[in-house]
Nucleic acid binder design. Structure first.
Lengths: 336, 336
DNA sequence: AAGCAATAGTTAAACGCTTAACTCTATAGC
DNA sequence: GCTATAGAGTTAAGCGTTTAACTATTGCTT
């Protein structure tokens, strides 16, 4: 492979000149620039990234990390939408995207991940908030790598959804339709800040309508479709009088939908089911899901923009992405 | 950050010794090894990957590339299953996963991608077969980077599904149920080899049952759910007597399901709908989809194993992953 | 006792780039 | 005429590893 030196020789200049011309340093004549560019084209020179990284300390690689939790990360469409936003922005800027899915062995982050963080291979990190979030992001911050978190982390720049508003919106929607006997398919406590805010929103909306959140029947799922079906089964068996199921994500709502169908319950006529996230599939279920759009693509986009600002030496403001109630056909007034 | 030299000084040996001990080169006493290891622990040394890469020519990075085609890659659950298999294997081996989604501007691969390939940053490549496949994989092969393709490429090691068998299986299933008036929701020609094989399988099965493939009504989609709905609408309007819809992927089948529901057609009683891929969502639609399981996870797993074999200097055999008919509830005999 | 192989470790060059510090005009200001 | 400054380019010192080639010691053959 041709090196800087080959280009320099061919263009009749020094390697420093080539390097600087290539990085658009000022103070070169057009003639010199042209000579260099021509030589580059002629011998098909492409910079060696490892050498560049070693010398400059920058790798042009940013990592997206999501702890491997519950089921496979790649199974969660919500995360993929975020990824897409990130990918698009990185592509635009000529950065490369590395994916890291640290395994968590008994609470400890895996060794490979730690090595990667320490290795100097990463110019920046975008981390998805999840259970063992601190343990994943802390090494990054300690090492001083620019990082932004999606979902919030006290010590980091972050972009998160307005989950409190989301909780209020979806619960309000149910209440305004006239539902009172509402089952909730939730996830284990302390999963992340977002979930707490969401639950608080639901609680507040309930209270505003004179309903006590703590009295509402609940089932605990794990975000997966299957757990949604299980939760629905359990809830409907113990509380056959429920008129609505509020699910903390779309996948669990899809499971609930499936279970309702299995039980011969027509949605939304006999049972209202709502989701959260607005993943692509939510629009194509039968019936399509009423849900909360988190604007995942925007979230990914904003996260990368924020990271690039950080890399440019700026101090960006943490951002809160507004959410939106999307009313489709899985919700209707309860039957009297 | 501490360097090799710091470790060497502390352990009272040369940097070469440290480097070799760390890479398990033979001919060192236990005492020396321990001294080195102790020093490493004490000062928290982590190798600098860029330096290592420059010096050794290996980066510990492998790239998964999928051309950006139609809609976002990240929207395709089938691909994500494959990714998961790849990710798991890379994680095990301590390799890092870089994702590249080259944009295709007027048939040409984007410049960033080409640079990445040439840059020496990649130890290996796994490429997903898609429309402009050659243009994406050719630079990789030319550069001599170990590569495996998923879906088949004449010049490369590959792992692919037995699409011909898949086509036969799904069509046979329909025919054996007694369907004859079958609509096909397909994709544009020449998308990739896999699709051609699949169509050939369908054709062969049709012929074996005395049905001429070319006479079957067809609609052309683009893999997306929406295009499946459109295709179904179009097909059912022009051919109201159809008793089954064979869709070339699950997402289009989900769209068809949705359209059937909109038209008030009960599936499978009044209309049979089948998919292909067996993405996770296929099991949770209402009704769950009859489809072909491509074993996407295995595919990803095998692809990375093959790549690692290649990196180990072996010459692996290209592999064909068997497929499997998964009969769920979206298919039934036609009404008489 | 010489020769050799195996063991244990070192030296120093190389990997390909960036960049601080430097040189050498040419022009401008006073 | 002398200094300052801006423009155009070069020199050479790293960046932190790996690794080929080398030295030195020990033990075993013959």
């Amino acid at each position: 492979m041709p090196t800087l030196e080959d280009v320099a020789r061919r263009a009749g200049v020094s390697t420093a000149t080539v390097s600087k011309v290539l990085s658009n340093t000022p103070y070169f004549t057009e003639a010199t620039r042209n000579k260099v560019m021509l030589a580059v084209k002629e011998i098909g020179y492409v910079p060696n990234l490892a050498a560049r990284a070693l010398s400059s300390g920058r790798t042009q690689i940013i990592a997206v990390v999501f702890p491997y939790v519950y089921d496979a990360i790649f199974a969660d469409p919500r995360i993929l939408c975020v990824m897409e936003g990130i990918d698009a922005e990185c592509n635009l800027r000529g950065y490369n995207l590395l994916i890291s899915t640290p395994r968590l062995i008994e609470g400890a982050v895996d060794e490979n991940y730690l090595q990667l963080i320490q290795s100097g291979y990463l110019d920046g990190v975008i981390a998805l908030n999840h259970v063992p979030f601190a343990s994943v992001l802390d090494p990054v911050l300690k090492k001083g790598i620019p990082a932004v978190s999606i979902g919030g982390h006290a010590a980091a720049y972050s972009v998160s959804s307005d989950h409190h508003a989301g909780g209020v919106l979806i619960m309000q929607h149910l209440l305004e339709l006239g539902h009172r006997r509402i089952g909730i398919i939730t996830v284990p406590d302390n999963i992340n800040i977002g979930t707490e805010q969401l639950l608080q929103g639901i609680r507040d909306a309930a209270q505003a309508h004179g309903l006590n959140f703590d009295d509402l029947p609940k089932a605990v799922g794990d975000y997966s479709t299957a757990s949604g079906a299980d939760g629905a089964a359990q809830l409907l068996q113990q509380h056959p009088d429920l008129t609505a199921l509020l699910c903390l994500n779309d996948r669990m709502a899809m499971g609930a939908l499936q279970e309702a169908h299995r039980l011969g319950l027509r949605v939304p006529d006999q049972l209202t089911i709502t989701g959260y996230d607005d993943i692509p599939a939510a629009a194509t279920t039968v019936p399509p899901l009423t849900t909360i759009d988190q604007h995942s693509l925007t979230t990914g986009y904003e996260a990368s923009r924020m990271l690039f600002d950080l890399l440019d030496g700026q101090k960006p403001e943490s951002k809160i992405i507004p959410v939106e109630l999307v009313i489709r056909s899985s919700s209707a007034p309860p039957i009297r």
